[in-house]
Amino acid sequence: MPETRYSAAINRALADAMAADESVVLFGEDVAAPGGPFAVTRGLLAKFGPLRVRDTPISEAAIAGAAAGAALSGLRPVVEIMFMDFMTFTMDALVNQAAKAHFMFGGQCSVPMVVRAPHGGGLNAGPQHSQCLEAWFAHVPGLKVVVPGNPADAYGLLRAAIDDPNPVVFVEHKGLYGSKGELPESPAPVAIGAARIARAGRDATVVTYGAAVAWSLRAADALAREGIETEVVDLRSVQPWDEATVLESVGRTRRLAIAHEAVSAFGVGAEIAACVSAKAFGRLAAPVARVGAAFMPVPFARSLERACLPGETEIAAAVRRLMAPA
């Protein structure tokens, strides 16, 4: 199986989807001629032409709103928002228009659109270019939210997202674009809402997604050297999320930590913790732990950002606390 970069897997998913369906169009800031700020869309303008691959002005509200309108009128737009932080300007289009159209128009229409946006810190990009805002969108009925953590899932989830009749927020991680992983010769879509056991283990479960999957796997390696076998569940989708896989895993390990880069407060981890507490309270041998960024804007200076964001060390520490006798 060939190794592919995460960014190349996204590029290939876009190309394959556009080749398969003429209704798929791509637009966003600098995605056409410049090939994308992170080179994710390089070459697509040459392949599919200026009618279907377009640079937009810096107008995030119009980008997302036009995507919704285009989706109502027969296209399957994929739009890029350069940084997830800029999605603040897309909120009306996504929250009030796209998310609700299928429902509030009584099922007359669907809104098959995808908004790609990179989240995450680690680049010293500061408070307005580093946020993980996926929980906002997961909170809105009508939206789907996926966060692939490796190239195969980036490909498979993007194909599924483009195919999906609902608006999907496709969250990439800036720090993962250069990472490599296996991608089959003929990769398949990955079902939205299906988690993946990234590592099996009997002692504790870490539920995670996005860049935090790799941190969790490294934490599990470290814990294994101490005799703690950690199961790592890569959610891949946060809305809908794979409750059955998580409950099954926690039912076996009886210990749960949830790790994500977003701040913990009111986050994806809070939703999972509440669900597991409600449905598997009797199975839990320890209180559910959450690992996330400090509740603060992501700071700029290297030392500050390192201290703010969670990582392998914090995840391993959380699992050790789960294993400690009460």
């Binding site: 709103g65 036009a66 919704a68 309108g69 109502l72 009128s73 228009q97 128009f105 007359q108």
Partner: peptide, 27 residues
């Protein structure tokens, strides 16, 4: 709203229909 006649909806948000029409024109 009635998609069968191209009526993309009244809208509760002032200005909310403008980007929708823009996208529809794009389509």
């Amino acid at each position: 709203a009635d998609m069968s006649i191209g009526m993309l909806g009244a809208n509760g948000i002032v200005g909310g229909g403008l980007p929708l029409a823009t996208g529809s024109a794009l389509a």
